[in-house]
């Protein structure tokens, strides 16, 4: 794994992003103050349980959140420009050419009534002045590149004629058509079976090594993160609870939730169930209780008898260089001394 160092200016700088859903039953705080940076050419992993707000975060970056959702606060700086300030027309120029996205369900992400060739050609036509013939040729070239056999013929196929793995390859081809700065991959392999998953990941790894595109990789699968990501953020209930370089985070997980995730990685076997090993459920994101969002499931809180956890929300603090965590085990507060500062240090020394 190559660890690319963060350069001076990040490619993407997300600050205090908040996206809320105004539902019938109240305001659902799906993304509630998320900060992170992605460096050029970096692979940035985003992990967390189902419903913690990963997809909403990524859709917010593209400004594709559907009603009743709204981005209510924050900044999304792409090379210093705030995407949230752009007009809708300016935003369409960014999408597909500077940031592109692939989704969890490749088959339903392709329009069933157009051939895949047409759908790829469309990307060129939107953003470039290009002849139909050239666009078609490039589309076929892209399909070849992502490993679609017999690309000339397959370009005439409709999405229902593809397998899930092929559909995801097509999605990747479409996303990379214009060599974007940033690719957001929202659980690109979750819907695929294991062997196909491996192939798609190989393809992504290959593309990472051969293009200049940075990747935000969203997944449930810590194994995938360990293999592909340079940096990782762990999300819980709409907030980032821990963030660090992949090696550091895997060597020394700080947050009890991250530790739980790591503890539940099986050596072999099915990847699906592992995240449910931490007892309890993600809290409803409507009308959250005060304090730490993980409190109801946190063993460390009980162990150390921390009352502050259910009263005040901890901040995301930089605990080690480049390694951030949001937990009272590490943060000082009036009348509260973090009990685990020493413990973590000790563990580190071993």
């Amino acid at each position: 794994m190559s660890t690319k160092k963060t350069t001076t200016q990040p490619l993407l700088d997300v600050q205090n992003l908040k996206t809320y859903f105004y539902t019938d039953d109240g305001v659902l705080t799906a993304v509630d103050g998320v900060d992170f940076q992605v460096a050029p050419r970096q692979v940035f992993g985003l992990v967390g349980e189902s419903g913690c707000g990963k997809s909403v975060t990524s859709l917010s970056l593209m400004r594709l959140v559907d009603t009743p959702g709204k981005i209510v606060d924050g900044q999304v700086l792409l090379q210093g420009e705030n995407l949230l300030d752009k007009t809708p027309a300016e935003m369409t120029k960014v999408r597909g050419s500077q940031i592109s996205m692939i989704f969890q369900q490749p088959k339903s992400s392709l329009n069933p009534v157009f051939t895949i060739g047409d759908q790829i050609v469309e990307v060129f036509k939107i953003h470039e002045t290009i002849s139909e013939k050239d666009a078609r040729q490039q589309a076929v070239e892209l399909l070849r590149r992502v490993g679609i056999p017999d690309p000339e013929r397959k370009a005439q196929a409709y999405p229902h004629e593809l397998s899930g793995g092929q559909a995801q390859r097509v999605m990747i081809a479409m996303a990379l058509a214009l060599k974007p700065r940033l690719l957001i991959a929202d659980e690109p392999t979750t819907a695929l079976d294991a062997t196909i998953q491996a192939q798609i990941l190989d393809l992504m790894q290959d593309l990472r090594d051969t293009t200049d595109t940075a990747v935000i990789l969203i997944t449930h699968d810590l194994g995938v993160i360990a293999e592909l990501a340079d940096r990782v953020a762990v999300m819980y209930a709409g907030k980032i609870v821990e963030e660090g370089d992949t090696t550091a985070l895997f060597d020394k997980p700080l947050h009890p939730y991250t530790q739980g995730l790591m503890g539940s990685i099986p050596v072999l076997g099915d990847t699906k169930e592992r995240l449910e090993v931490i007892p309890g459920n993600v809290p409803s994101l409507i009308n959250l209780q005060p304090g730490c969002r993980f409190a109801s499931r946190c063993g460390a809180r009980v162990e150390h008898n921390l009352e502050i956890c259910t009263q005040v929300e901890p901040d995301l603090i930089e605990f080690d260089a480049g390694h951030k965590v949001r937990c009272w085990l590490y943060q000082e507060h009036a009348g509260h001394t973090p009990p685990l500062k020493a413990f973590a240090d000790k563990k580190d020394r071993k």
Binding site: M62, T92, R95, S109, L110, V113, F114, E122, I126
Partner: peptide, 26 residues
């Protein structure tokens, strides 16, 4: 609300074309 409409938007297609081409046909 379909995913392929989201894809069409993510490609950078203008809203008008998203509606009249990708959505309406379906």
């Amino acid at each position: 609300g379909a995913e392929y409409v989201r894809t069409a938007r993510a490609k950078g297609l203008a809203e008008r074309a998203v509606i009249l081409k990708h959505a309406l046909r379906n």
